[in-house]
Design a protein around this nucleic acid. Structure first.
Length: 304
DNA sequence: CTCATAGAAGCTCCGTCCTA
DNA sequence: TAGGACGGAGCTTCTATGAG
């Protein structure tokens, strides 16, 4: 555990208004939240802090190796993480938002009726393609060259692997449940993307690849909390995965919502899993409808 | 009739893998 | 070593269908 921030529930619930859900499927549940942008100001600062804390590990990773010669990074021009993530392409930032909201929802709103899910760390540091891209961007700034972050040529593929992992522990600290979260974040709804997300979740294994990444990541931290997580994740990786229950979560963040028919609330299916979801596990679908998605990306990641 | 939606196909990128 | 296919991310455009 290297992250601890929580957002006060009252302003959070006012900003992300939960829509009543209707389904009664045994293994599937859809929850829908719709943004009330007018209530954003009250969560703004806490949300920025939460989103930025999620990126702290990636920043530390970017700076690693430069610390001896450049520390402290008093001059922004010296800081290899200075432009992270603000100068990355908008689509990359949407991806970060989607993953962050997935974790946020599980930590604040629970999942499967349980409120004790833990997300020990986000996996942003494993986005190698953007780290290489960042070197290029930093060089441009040092040369005084122009950098247009949202130009099409600045798009980079997303990170492969699990988007986020959450866990439940028993009283002895042993991992009993693994929740693999697949996150998507689009300006406009896209049914193909929904199908692919379900398909990817269905293909997941009981021992998601992200566990190994989490162990690698947390091993860099010497706190008791982090080391305890390394130990329990190692146990999960070696033996525990055979008995721990894997569940699936889909966090679908989208910049519009259905208009027709008037009774339709969500893009995701309310009653049963999408046909592309062929696994028999329990699936928690979460849909975040943001009326000012682009503005939110700017606020959280670009500081305006 | 008009507007919205689903689904398919095509597009922009980069890195990786395979083949000549 | 060079060229090409492919994968993975989301966007755009098109068509057929359906709602109001």
């Amino acid at each position: 555990m290297i992250r601890f921030r929580r957002i006060a529930l009252n302003p959070l619930n006012d900003w992300l208004s939960a829509k009543p859900s209707s389904g009664s499927h045994g293994k599937y549940e859809l929850r829908v939240w719709r943004e009330v942008n007018a209530n954003f100001a009250a969560v703004r600062d806490e949300l920025i802090a939460y989103a930025q804390e999620a990126l702290d590990d990636a920043r530390a990773r970017i700076r690693k190796g430069f610390e001896e010669t450049l520390s402290p990074f008093s001059d922004a021009a010296d800081d290899p993480a200075a432009h992270y993530p603000a100068m990355l392409n908008r689509i990359t930032l949407q991806g970060y938002l989607g993953e962050t909201l997935a974790g946020l929802a599980v930590e604040h709103f629970g999942a499967f009726g349980e409120n004790d899910w833990c997300v020990p760390a986000f996996l942003f540091r494993f986005h190698d393609q953007e780290f290489q891209h960042l070197d290029l961007i930093n060089e441009r700034f040092l040369r005084g060259a122009v950098h247009d972050p949202d130009a099409v040529v600045e798009r980079r593929p997303g990170r492969t692997g699990d988007d986020a992992l959450a866990f439940r522990l028993d009283q002895g600290g042993k991992i009993t449940h693994v929740l693999a979260l697949e996150a998507k974040c689009l300006i406009r709804n896209n049914s193909t993307t929904i199908a692919e997300a379900h398909n990817k979740l269905a293909e997941g294994t009981c021992r998601p690849s992200g566990i190994r990444e989490l162990i690698t990541l947390l091993s860099d931290y010497k706190t008791d909390e982090a080391q305890a997580w390394v130990a329990r994740l190692l146990e999960l990786f070696k033996e525990g995965f055979k008995t721990a229950e894997r569940r699936d979560g889909l966090a679908y963040t989208v910049g519009n919502w259905p208009k027709q028919p008037a009774t339709r609330v969500s893009w995701l299916s309310p009653n049963a899993p999408h046909a592309s979801y062929t696994a028999g596990r329990r699936l928690d679908a979460m849909e975040f409808q943001l009326e000012a998605l682009e503005q939110l990306v700017d606020t959280l990641y670009r500081g305006f």
